[in-house]
Design a binder for these strands. Structure first.
Length: 480
RNA sequence: GGGAACGUCGUCUAGUUUGGCUAUGAUGCUAGUCUGGGGGGCUAGAGGUCGGAGGUUCGAAUCCUCCCGUUCCCA
C-alpha cells in the first residue's frame, strides 16, 4: 500500500538504482528535458547554498573576492593552451549560430574558465603591486557527457565554484594550493560529515595544463572513490601563452605564477551516497534545508488546539536560536505518513508532540541517522536541540570515518591488490616510477591512482606490477 | 567504448504477442465525512489520446522508420 512512495530497493543490493531513486524521490533534483541535464529543486539548491555560504566565508577570510564570468568563450581563446584544450575538446558544446545567421568565430559554452579569466587577468595585472590576485567565480560549467549521466555525479552542466589566483612567485602560489585544499577538507568534514583523504594526483591523472594537482578523495559505499575537490598548481603554464606578466620591484618583467581550484555539486552526490540508507536520504544537520521537523499529534479538537499552540511556541524558540525548523501542520496526513516522508527526505531530527507527551511535559526526539527515539523534557529544549544536532553531525562523521578506515587496505602483491579491489577497498600499494605500470594496472583492473598522500614515499618495496624497486605507495581505487 | 531494458493520467501500471467498442486498475489530487502515537476508512468528483514526427491501414497505444528521453550491467 503506497510503499512505492519510498525508495523501493536496498542500498546494499542495487546501489545505482538506490541512488537514482533517492535523489528523485527526496525531491533534491529532477531530470531536465535535455539529455544529461538535471534541475535542482529547492531542497537540493538549499544544500548547495549552505555549502556556498560556508565556503564564501572562508574565501573572504583568506582574501578572495567573487566575480562573474560570461558563459561564452571564443574558440581562439579556448585553444590557446594546447594541452589544456586537447583535454577538453571532445566535451565542448559549440554555439555556431545567432538567430538564422552563422557566427564567424564559433563560441564555446565554457567547460572551464582558465583561458577566459587569464586573458582578463593579463589586462588587469601590470605590477607586483597588483598581486596576489585572488578571485573566485560561482557559476556553471558545461561539458557534453557521452557516457551515462548520473544526477550530481556526472551531468553535462554542473554548478561549481572555480577559484583563480595569480602570484609573484612559485612559493606563494604553492602555498595557496595547499591552503585551499585544507579549506576544502575542513568544509567537507564540518558541513557534510564526509571524511576525505588528501594528497597529490599522479602525473597521469592531474588536471590538463597543471604542473600538479592536489585532490581530496572520498570512498563511496560501492567501493568506488569520488574526487571531491581539486586544487591545481599551474606554475607558468598559462601565464606564458596568455602573456600574464608583471613588473617586479626592479622593474623587470616576469611571468606570474598561478593556481586554480574548484568544488562542484558532486559534493552533494557524495553526501547522498555516504550517508543515505534504505529509507532514503540522511542529511548532515549543518546543510539540511530543514534541521528539525515538528510533528503535532492529536485526537480531539481540544488537543489539536493545545498541541498546535505548544508546537508553535517550540518552533518560535528554535527559530530564535537560528535553527531551521518547520511544523508539519498538514491535516490530511496521518503522523505515520509524515514520519516516513520526512525520513525519506533525510531531516536529521524529528520532534513528536502528542497528548501523552504533554501530560508528562515532554516531547519525543527521533533521530534520522540511527533512528533512535527518546523522551525529552520541554524545559531547556532549545539547548538540547542545539547539542543534539552537533552530536548527530559528530556521530555521522565518526561512523563514516570508521568505515573509511575499515575499508582501506595495504597490500604488497598484485594478487592481493586484485582481491582487495573486488571487496571495494581503497588500496595502498607500492608502485615504481614507470608510467606504464600505472597505465597497465588501470587497463587490467580499471583501478587508478586516486591520491598520493604526503607519507606515500616508499623506495624499499617492489612495484606490484613489474617488481622493480618502488618509488611510492599511493592509494588506488576504481573511480567515478 | 560495448550490451540490455524501458517510455500509457502527478506516480506506479493493464492493454502491445494476434491492429477493432468509451484506454484498465491502484495510488495521489479536490470536496465532504469519520479518523489520527509508524505510509487510515467511506462517499462523490476532476485528471490521460498512450514520449515526438512521419508512414502502413477502412481503423494504430498496438505494425514499420527516424528522432527525443530514462534506467541498469560490463570495459
Amino acid at each position: 500500500m503506497g510503499k512505492e512512495i519510498g525508495v523501493t530497493v536496498k542500498k546494499s543490493e542495487d546501489f545505482s538504482e538506490w541512488y537514482t531513486q533517492t535523489v528523485i524521490k527526496s525531491e533534491l533534483a529532477d531530470y531536465a528535458p535535455v539529455k544529461g541535464l538535471i534541475v535542482l529543486r529547492p531542497d537540493g539548491y538549499s544544500i548547495w547554498e549552505s555549502l556556498k555560504s560556508s565556503l564564501d566565508k572562508k574565501f573572504a577570510a583568506t582574501g578572495h573576492r567573487n566575480g562573474f564570468l560570461p558563459t561564452l568563450i571564443p574558440e581562439s581563446l579556448l585553444t590557446k593552451e594546447k594541452d589544456h584544450f586537447a583535454g577538453f575538446n571532445p566535451e565542448v558544446f559549440w554555439v555556431t549560430k545567432s538567430g538564422d545567421g552563422e557566427l564567424g568565430d564559433r563560441l564555446a559554452l565554457r567547460p572551464t574558465s582558465e583561458t577566459l579569466a587569464y586573458t582578463l587577468f593579463a589586462k588587469w595585472i601590470r605590477s607586483w603591486r597588483d598581486l596576489p590576485l585572488k578571485i573566485n567565480f560561482w557559476n556553471t560549467a558545461l561539458r557534453a557527457e557521452i557516457k551515462a549521466t548520473k544526477p550530481f555525479l556526472r551531468t553535462s552542466e554542473f554548478l561549481w565554484q572555480e577559484g583563480h589566483t595569480v602570484h609573484v612567485n612559485s612559493e606563494e602560489a604553492e602555498k595557496e594550493v595547499t591552503d585551499i585544499l585544507e579549506l576544502y577538507k575542513k568544509t567537507v568534514e564540518e558541513e557534510l560529515a564526509i571524511p576525505v583523504i588528501t594528497g597529490k594526483k599522479s602525473e597521469k591523472e592531474k588536471f590538463v595544463g597543471a604542473v600538479y594537482t592536489f585532490t581530496m578523495e572520498a570512498l563511496m559505499p560501492d567501493g568506488k572513490a569520488l574526487q571531491m575537490g581539486t586544487s591545481h598548481f599551474l606554475g607558468q603554464n598559462f601565464s606564458k601563452p596568455f602573456e600574464l606578466k608583471y613588473a617586479d620591484k626592479d622593474n623587470v618583467e616576469s611571468y606570474a605564477w598561478q593556481t586554480s581550484w574548484g568544488v562542484s555539486w558532486r559534493l552533494i552526490g557524495g553526501m547522498i551516497m555516504i550517508h543515505g540508507d534504505d529509507r532514503g536520504l540522511v542529511l548532515p544537520p549543518r546543510v539540511a534545508p530543514i534541521q528539525v521537523i515538528i510533528i503535532p499529534i492529536y485526537y480531539s479538537d481540544e488537543d489539536k488546539e493545545k498541541i498546535g499552540k505548544i508546537s508553535k511556541e517550540i518552533e518560535e524558540k528554535l527559530k530564535d536560536a537560528e535553527i531551521r525548523v518547520q511544523v508539519d501542520n498538514r491535516e490530511q496526513l496521518t503522523p505515520g505518513f509524515k514520519f516516513n516522508e520526512w525520513e525519506m527526505k533525510g531531516i536529521p531530527l524529528r520532534i513528536e508532540i502528542g497528548p501523552k507527551d504533554l501530560e508528562k511535559n515532554q516531547v519525543t526526539f527521533a533521530r534520522r541517522h540511527n533512528r533512535q527515539k527518546d523522551d525529552q523534557e520541554i524545559t531547556g529544549l532549545v539547548e538540547r536541540v542545539v547539542s543534539e544536532l552537533d552530536k548527530i553531525h559528530n556521530d555521522m562523521f565518526s561512523d563514516a570515518k570508521k568505515i573509511l578506515q575499515e575499508r582501506t587496505s595495504e597490500v604488497d602483491t598484485y594478487d592481493e591488490f586484485k582481491t582487495e579491489l573486488e571487496k571495494g577497498r581503497l588500496i595502498k600499494a607500492p608502485i615504481c616510477n614507470n608510467p606504464e605500470c600505472e597505465e597497465g594496472i588501470k587497463e587490467e583492473t580499471s583501478a587508478d591512482v586516486r591520491v598520493i598522500t604526503s607519507d606515500a614515499e616508499d623506495t624499499s618495496s617492489k612495484c606490484i606490477k613489474c617488481s622493480d624497486q618502488s618509488s611510492m605507495r599511493p592509494l588506488f581505487a576504481r573511480g567515478y
